[in-house]
Simulated assay, not measured.
Amino acid sequence: MSHDQRESVCHKLSRELRHFKWREIFTWKLLKTLAMGQGLSALICGTAVTSQYLATEFHLDVPMLQSCINYTLLCLTYTTALCFRKGNKNILQILKTKWWKYVLLGLADVEANYAVVKAYQYTTLTSIQLLDCFILPVLLVLSRVFLKSRYRIIHYVAVCVCLAGVGAMVGADLVSGRDQGSSSNILLGDGLVIISATLYAVSNLCQEYIVKNESRVEFLGMVGFFGTLISGIQLGILEHVQVANIQWTWQIALLLCGFAVCMYTLYSCMPVVISMSSATAVNLSLLTADLFSLFCGLFLFQYTFSGLYVVSLMVIMVGFIMFNAVPTPNQTPEPVCEDGGHDNQAAEIDDERQVGSEVENQEKGQTDSSGKSLPAENGHGCVLSSVKL
C-alpha cells in the first residue's frame, strides 16, 4: 500500500470517528443485541460442554445423531406450524415454489455442522479456532454482493479488532498448553474447517434474508423439515453401527437431552438476534463462545487459566460494539408495499430520509388539481414506508 493510500485510509477512519455520536452508541437496542448475542454464545457453550462429556466420559462420538435430534425438534414445532398456515405461507405453497432452494439451504446447514465436528479428528483446536473465523470475511463479501450491505471503514476495523481478540485467545491456549485435538492429517482437517465456515456463512446469509423478508417460522420450519431428512439419511449411512452399539444410561440420555435443548434454543433464538442486527454482527458476538467454554472448563475439566482470556473477551466486546455503533444500510434499499413484504431493517434510516425528501419536494410543487399533495410513490405504485421488523 502506497503512502497516499495509507493517508486516505487514515483520513476516512478519522472522519468516521469524528462523526460518531458517542453518547448515542450505548443505546438500549445495542445493549439488548449484545446481551442476546452473549446468550447465544452461552448456548453454544452448553452444546460444547455436553458434547465433550459424551466424548470423554462415555466415548460417544455421534455428531449426526445429535444434529438429527435437533432438526427433528425443529420439524415437530416450526414445520407443524407451517402446516396450519393459510394462503401462500402454507407449507404446500412454499414447497411448490421454493423447495429446491430450501433443499440446498438444509444441505449447507447439515454439512456445516458435520464438517466442523469431523475436523477435530484430523487437526488441532488452535487451527479450528483460527480457521473458523473464515466465516467473517465470507459473510462480508456475500452480504456486500447479495444483500447490498454498505460497509464502512469502521466496520472492517471492528472485524480486525475481533480477530485480534481471537488471536489473543489462541495465544492463551498455547501458553496454557491447551492445544487439543489431533494432527493426523492437518491439511484435511483445516480444509474441513474452511468448508464448514463457508457453508455456515451461506446458511447465515440465507437466514438473514429469509428472516427479514419472509418470516422466522418459515426459515426454521423449512430447515427443520429438510434438515431432518438429510441428517436422517446421513445418520443411517454413517453412524448406524455406533448408534446400535450405544450402552444407554440415564447420564447419556440426560447429556443428549441437554445438548438438544441448547441447540434447539440456539436455532430458535438466533433468527431473532439476526433480525435486530445482521448475520455478520451475530457471528462477531459468537466469537466469545469458545471463551465461555474455557471458563466452564476451568471448573469442569481443570483447564489452566490465563489472563489473556480476559483480554481476549474485552477486545472482542470492543470490536462488536464498534461494528454495531454504525448502521450498515443497503446500497439500494427497496421500498415496501403497505400490504405486504419486508424492508431491510438496516436501511430504515435511509428510507426515512428518502420519504422526507419526497414529501418535501411534493409540498413545494407537485399538487393535484384540487390543491392536495400527492403521495410519494415508487415505480411500482407502492407507497414508500419504513418498516420495522
Rank of each mutant, 00 (worst) to 15 (best):
S183M: 02
S183H: 06
I154P: 00
Y114C: 06
P333E: 13
F226T: 03
G87W: 05
L254I: 05
A279M: 04
L298M: 06
L384A: 09
L92F: 14
T328W: 10
W248T: 02
R18H: 08
L30G: 03
M276N: 01
D368E: 03
G106Q: 03
P271Y: 02
C160R: 07
R15K: 11
V310E: 10
Y114P: 05
H155R: 08
G181V: 12
Q354F: 14
Q66K: 15
N361M: 11
T77F: 15
L294D: 07
Y122Q: 07
L30C: 05
T56M: 13
T280E: 09
Y303E: 12
L13P: 01
T228E: 00
L131M: 08
Y71S: 09
E348W: 14
F292W: 14
I230T: 03
C262K: 03
E360M: 12
S293Q: 08
M1F: 12
E16G: 06
K89P: 01
E348Q: 13
F323V: 02
S373A: 09
V62N: 12
P271H: 05
F84Q: 05
S357R: 12
V193T: 06
P137E: 08
L43M: 15
E16V: 09
E24T: 09
L287S: 06
Y102W: 11
I25R: 00
G189M: 04
V141P: 01
V273C: 07
K101P: 03
A281Y: 11
V383Y: 03
L254W: 14
F225V: 01
I233D: 02
V170G: 10
C160V: 14
V141T: 11
L374G: 00
I194G: 01
S373E: 07
T124K: 11
C257R: 05
I44S: 06
A279S: 15
G365L: 06
Q121V: 02
L235S: 06
F292S: 12
D290V: 11
F58A: 08
N245T: 09
V159F: 07
I135T: 14
G341D: 09
L235Y: 09
T27N: 07
S183Q: 08
